[in-house]
């Protein structure tokens, strides 16, 4: 997972995104680029604008200013809560969304995602009867049905136990290794440190930092945090007035 981001190889370029809700500015002039196959974590305190940023990239919300290079149809979207139908089976959910995505070969896409998400043996089970981890895998599988170049995941591990989380990150890591650009938001700073090639630090709608976790740690080392990434991150925000 080498953190490389150049304009030539950018899978996703965001330029001057601004979003306001009345008087409040949720995002202020946010710009960045993400390369193909890169795994990027968006971190920041509550209300930083992480979900707003991902919603704009996914095409759910519109920006007041700025642009996104990738059209929403080319972006796979995995919301925080499993956005699948609990009364339908895993296969029926995949088939439904494959049809709605107008995937050329629906059966092949469903079989591929069942295999990729390791859900083939649960294909006939109603989603409502699955564990939280398996539901989240179905959720991600639906987001990947159309084989998007970029996948956005909003806090994908928030409702999972440590074992399920481990399996989830293994699955996401495989995606990135196959060339899919993955952008995810998280509250868990350790997950960003451990799995991301690059982190974007947002606070109060401002992009404060973009670079590898190691670079963030180096920056934080200046504040003598003794190598504790989370403490360094908190100190970093504090030093910048957040």
């Amino acid at each position: 997972m080498s953190p490389v981001a150049t304009s030539d190889r950018a899978a996703l370029a965001v330029t001057g995104i601004t979003k306001r809700y009345g008087e409040r500015t949720a995002l202020r002039d946010v710009s960045f680029e993400i390369a193909s196959g890169e795994l990027v974590a968006v971190i920041g305190p509550n209300g930083a604008g992480k979900t707003t940023l991902l919603s704009i990239l996914a095409g759910i919300a519109s920006a007041d200013a700025g642009s996104v290079s990738c059209p929403p149809r080319d972006v796979g979207w995995v919301p925080q809560q499993p956005a699948v139908y609990s009364k339908l089976s895993v296969r029926e959910n995949l088939r439904l969304f494959a049809r709605l995505e107008r995937v050329a070969d629906v059966d092949a896409a469903v079989a591929r995602m069942l295999a990729q998400a390791d859900l083939a043996d649960r294909a006939g089970d109603e989603v409502g009867r699955l564990s939280g981890g398996n539901k989240q895998r179905v959720n991600i599988a639906v987001g990947l049905l159309a084989e998007p170049r970029v996948v956005l995941l909003d806090e994908p591990s928030s409702s999972l136990d440590p074992r399920q989380r481990e399996r989830l990150w293994g699955f996401i890591g495989e995606l990135a290794s196959r060339g899919t650009t993955v952008v995810y938001s998280t509250h868990n700073v350790q997950e960003a440190e451990r799995y991301a090639d690059r982190v974007l630090v947002l606070a109060d709608g401002e992009l404060l930092f973009t670079g590898s976790p190691r670079e963030l740690e180096s920056t934080a080392d200046r504040y003598s945090t003794g190598g504790d990434f989370e403490a360094a991150f908190v100190r970093f925000l504090h030093e910048r007035g957040h």
Binding site: A58, G59, I60, P72, R73, W77, P79, Q81, P82, A83, V84, Y85, S86, F97, L100, E101, V142
Partner: peptide
Amino acid sequence: EEHAFTRLVRGLV
């Protein structure tokens, strides 16, 4: 309730 609305209206329907 199924959180599917946002997924559906981002281009699917």
